[in-house]
């Protein structure tokens, strides 16, 4: 699928960077979400009726089964997708109206276990399982990408960048993931 060309000037927009493991959701007209991807995936979701958009940025496809650390589990797509969808629903989006764009999933270095390919396969399968329509994608290959997404418009621009190295590592922030409380 070809990437979409953005026909609006986003230079005056408020730019919000979406780092690995983060997500952003907005319905503001003058906001643009921006991220740089290697083997990571950014999913951009959009509800065209509510005019709400969101972007996430995740490192890995699915837990292997031996990964039990809650903070580590946050790197995975299945968690990142749920957090993004929940944040959009909380703002008034409807699950059955969501449209998706997928970016990233490049093979950044050989012998890296084809993380990018697995990520891309996961993201496509997730959207299929969740019955979310895939509107556009630019995934795979061997170059990093810079993605800009206007959440209120649902428009995106994806540029391949040869000289930019995406930061792909886990920020371990102690938090409440995996917490169990009994009442």
């Amino acid at each position: 699928m070809a990437e979409t060309t953005m026909k609006i000037n986003i230079n005056n927009f408020k730019r919000i960077d979406v780092m690995q493991g983060e997500k952003q959701v907005s319905s503001e007209d003058d906001v643009v979400f921006s991220t740089v991807l290697g083997s990571c995936i950014a999913a951009c979701l959009y509800d065209p009726i509510a005019k709400i958009g969101g972007m996430n940025h995740f490192l890995l496809a699915e837990p292997s089964g031996s990964d039990h650390d809650p903070n580590s589990l946050k790197r995975y797509g299945v968690y990142a997708m749920e957090v993004l969808i929940n944040a959009m629903l909380a703002k008034g989006a409807h699950r059955n109206r969501l449209r998706a764009r997928l970016y990233g999933g490049a093979t950044m270095r050989s012998g890296f276990g084809d993380i990018g390919i697995k990520n891309a396969e996961f993201a496509r399968r997730f959207l299929q399982d969740e019955h979310i329509l895939l509107n556009a994608e630019d995934i795979g290959g061997t170059t990093a990408r810079r993605v800009d997404f206007c959440p209120a418009l649902g428009l995106a621009r994806c540029r391949h960048v040869e000289n930019q190295r995406p930061v792909e590592r886990l920020e371990v922030v102690p938090d409440k993931a995996g917490d169990v409380t009994f009442f």
Partner: peptide, 22 residues
């Protein structure tokens, strides 16, 4: 949730081990 009558609260993402223990 506690007032509604829940028995416990688990924060995702969950590890299968922790879920099993709960």
């Amino acid at each position: 949730a506690r007032i509604a009558g829940a028995t416990g609260w688990i924060v995702k993402p969950f590890s299968p081990d922790k879920l099993a223990a709960a």
